[in-house]
Design a protein around this nucleic acid. Structure first.
Lengths: 236, 236
DNA sequence: GTCATCATGTAAGCCGTTACATGATTGC
DNA sequence: GCAATCATGTAACGGCTTACATGATGAC
């Protein structure tokens, strides 16, 4: 217990919830799908997988296609192959090592998804949590969004304070702070839209629940105003 | 030589170029002025200052007000104070330790400002470089901005690829990637504005230089379109 | 005189990167 | 057979955070 996993562990478990994967593929998804700071190195990924395996959160299995049910041909080559397969039963003679999440891993995932995060990794953790938000119950989702809103609100306040303080600085610094402020405003308005659509969904979903709607636990909001009709006209 | 300083060292030297500061004050400026990932801890700041001092990039001096010219009163208390002051000449009996940048530090600053940065810290380094852009010659400024533009362009391309790939994912992930894309577009358009104003300035400044304008080395662009007339109307 | 704040520093430990080392698979 | 890629791991190293320890200063 008390496994102090970080951001990486959360990402791994979340991806493994969807399907079994081996390390190499996991790295690709981490970079491409989640973005995830543009790249996790093997030197941190494999140790993380080893830790998770040691903690019982994942198990390593041979890939699905390679069932290795020894055919008993009697041939020397066959015997040798069988020997090597038995010597390293979990992974085919240092071949792919496919990981699967365990019930322990599922509960660890739940803990990590709800745990506090340090200030420095706040952004990455939030992105990850949002990517896995569909696994959260609606009220936790809303709580997460509102906590994020509070953080961003503070960040915006700080940015505006810096903006005032930068009045007598050079124009590069002023522009920098101005841009930070705008970015913070953009983030905040995005979160507000997320919260609004979340509220709208739960408002319609809760009465529907008593009326016998389908799968209220897993549903995600329809998100009406999430992709605005005019998404990027100023960047044409 | 070959002092492999990181982001922190660059920030420290840049702040010390403006005025002498002690560590505690330095930390405040780092957080408040530069933003700088919302806080550097003492545990990294003081060792960094010690390294810089060891490398001869900064020197520690007693604060300006406390000149400690022993008045020779003959009193026991006076003698004792003088003794303690002499025993630790650099800092008044573990009082403030004010740092000043040396010529070595100036050249180190120049190197760090022009050095390559690893991908993971690209954003922070760029923010820092822009904040100190006034110390760069105009052509280096432009080069820095165009390098940044290239990075952001790549980032935008990746974000758009993720956006396409996220078509069949849940709405939370879609919204996340959508927002990342918009943020990248916003960043890119900002850089484009910076580049444009930089070009405009150098176009007018270069003829002015031959005509004998004042201080061509330190001048910064007037930046006409940098702070748009309608900065945040949609967030009122 | 004591408490909050200012101010400097040390030590342990985490986390992650880079570089290195190895082996399997596939296409030519 | 050989190269490129896929795939997994280890070891060295460094930076940063947290927690701890110390001391000065000023307000009340």
């Amino acid at each position: 217990m008390c496994y102090r996993g970080g951001v990486l562990e959360l990402a791994i478990l979340g991806l493994l919830k969807e399907q079994d994967l081996h390390g190499y593929e996991l790295k690709k998804r981490l970079s491409e799908m989640l973005g995830f700071a543009s790249g996790v190195s093997f030197g941190s990924l494999y140790p993380a997988l080893a830790r998770l395996e040691a903690a019982g959160a994942v198990t390593a299995a041979a890939p699905a296609g390679a069932s290795r049910s020894v055919p008993m041909t009697g041939s020397l080559a066959g015997e040798l192959a069988a020997f090597r397969a038995l010597r390293a039963p979990v992974r085919g003679r240092r071949g792919k090592k496919v990981y699967r999440i365990t019930p322990t891993g599922e509960s660890l995932f739940g803990e990590l998804l709800g745990a506090e995060s340090s200030v420095s990794e706040e952004d990455r953790v939030f992105a990850l949590r949002l990517a896995f938000a569909r696994y959260l119950p609606p009220e936790s989702r809303l709580g997460m969004l509102e906590l994020r809103r509070a953080h961003l609100s503070q960040r915006l306040a700080r940015a505006r304070a810096r903006l005032s303080a930068a009045r007598d600085r050079d124009s590069y610094t002023q522009s920098l702070v101005q841009h930070d402020t705008e970015a913070a405003e953009h983030d905040l308005s995005w979160i507000d839209r997320l919260i609004a659509s979340e509220r709208a969904t739960s408002a319609t979903a809760t009465p529907a629940l008593t009326a016998g709607a389908s799968r209220p636990e897993i549903d995600s909001p329809t998100i009406s105003g999430l992709h605005p009709a005019t998404p990027q006209e100023e960047f044409a």
